[in-house]
């Protein structure tokens, strides 16, 4: 299984700059909400999400991005992440994840759940992505109006 190096940020200022960039980008899609827990501790949880569709539009999609960071000297090291795109219109989901899986640590994988199917435990091989890289792809998918397509993804042998 693919293991990840992990993104590092050299200090708190770099973390704040990255946060500001992420919020600015998401703010152009919807009204983001950010929950940042543990910045004064050794373990930090960064949760930002944005629903697409404000009144009078119904909510059509959600971009939900979670990260878990460990203190690394004066900075931070990204240990796990979940970058999820929920397409409510097509009732489907595409996600990039890095977390423990089937007893293995820090496994990179993709969740691809096309329209009409219930959430599945199937995992696909993935490469490491940064939040903004994942968001660029997922936002383009949403704007294109295309349904999620798992063609070309290779199953990860954990299921």
């Amino acid at each position: 299984m693919a293991l990840a190096r992990g993104l590092t940020l050299r200090d708190d200022h770099a973390f704040e700059q990255r946060t500001a960039t992420i919020l600015a980008i998401l703010d152009d899609l919807g009204s983001p909400s950010l929950d940042d827990t543990g910045k004064a501790d050794a373990l930090r949880r960064f949760h930002v999400e944005v629903d697409i569709g404000e009144a009078p539009l119904a909510i059509q999609a959600r971009f939900r991005y979670l990260e878990w960071w460990s203190r690394d000297g004066r900075g931070w090291r990204l240990t796990k992440y979940q970058y999820d795109y929920f397409d409510r219109v097509h009732r489907s989901r595409l996600a990039y994840h890095r977390h423990h899986l089937a007893g293995e640590p820090d496994v990179l994988h993709i969740h691809c759940e096309p329209s009409g199917k219930p959430p599945s435990a199937r995992h696909f091989r993935a490469y490491e992505v940064d939040l903004l890289e994942a968001h660029e792809e997922l936002a383009a998918l949403y704007v294109s109006g295309r349904a999620i397509d798992c063609a070309g993804l290779r199953p990860l042998r954990v299921d």
């Binding site: 009204s31 909400s33 950010l34 827990t37 501790d41 939900r64 977390h99």
Partner: peptide
């Protein structure tokens, strides 16, 4: 944007291993 910061809040390290 809505921003909530908890500098000393509890973080569950196993949450990441559960599917949303």
């Amino acid at each position: 944007p809505r921003i909530v910061e908890q500098p000393h809040g509890h973080v569950d390290p196993t949450e990441a291993d559960r599917e949303p």
